[in-house]
């Protein structure tokens, strides 16, 4: 298979960022391309689909559009009332095998992995930099680990997922690929005053 080309291309450069500090305020890292499989169902049969996901893939489907559930390397984000995103690593084959068993009357699936660039933002000022644009309360109480939100930063649609982390707040931000460079330019400029570093792409 040909390599999946990063949307950030030549604008992505690892290294220190902005104001030097003892501890980097913000660490940014582009993530490797994700397998992103979207499953959409209909209200009358969606409960049954969720049950078979639990049975076949061993993952409970979240009851709301905020919580992320994870099992092995597959996470489920409920991005709409009857719409799920399977974010998967090597297990994508299992997920695809499952979705192929579904008829169009039950649910439909769409591959959207190439449409999103994923950026990981960590560090003590991760919340600060996100809130420069994100109108979402990222406080522990309002936005604990394994919660996500779909929102907008600098007019760019984003999905922000707070990752489980023992080392300070960590977020994965999913950005539409065609906006990725613009978002990156915004992010780097917003992060520069807080100091930090850009890591080599994962």
């Amino acid at each position: 298979m040909a390599d999946i080309r990063s949307a950030l291309g030549s604008v992505y450069k690892a290294g220190p960022l902005g104001t030097p500090r003892d501890f980097p305020g913000v660490t940014l890292q582009e993530q490797s391309p994700r397998n992103l499989i979207q499953l959409s169902g209909w209200p009358d049969s969606f409960g049954a689909i969720c049950e078979s996901i639990a049975a076949r893939l061993g993952i409970r489907v979240p009851v709301d559009c905020l919580t992320v559930t994870t099992h092995d390397d597959v996470s489920i984000l409920r991005v709409g009332p009857t719409r799920l995103w399977f974010v998967c690593g090597a297990s994508s084959a299992r997920v695809r095998a499952f979705t192929e068993t579904l008829g169009a009357g039950d649910a439909v699936t769409t591959e959207i992995g190439h449409s999103r660039t994923v950026l990981r933002i960590t560090g003590s000022e991760a919340r600060t930099v996100l809130n420069r644009g994100l109108p979402i309360d990222l406080d522990d109480r309002a936005f604990p680990e394994n919660v996500f939100a779909q929102s907008v930063i600098h007019h760019i649609p984003v999905l922000v997922h707070r990752l489980p982390s023992s080392d300070g707040p960590a977020f994965d931000v999913y950005v539409s690929r065609e906006y990725a460079v613009s978002f990156w330019e915004w992010l780097v400029e917003a992060a520069a005053p807080l100091g930090g570093r850009i890591l080599e792409s994962a």
Binding site: A7, E178, Y179, V181, E189
Partner: peptide, 18 residues
Amino acid sequence: GPETGLHFRPIRRSPMHD
């Protein structure tokens, strides 16, 4: 805010833009 110059508005780029 930062929405001037380069950031006046976001830009959408094709995968072949580079």
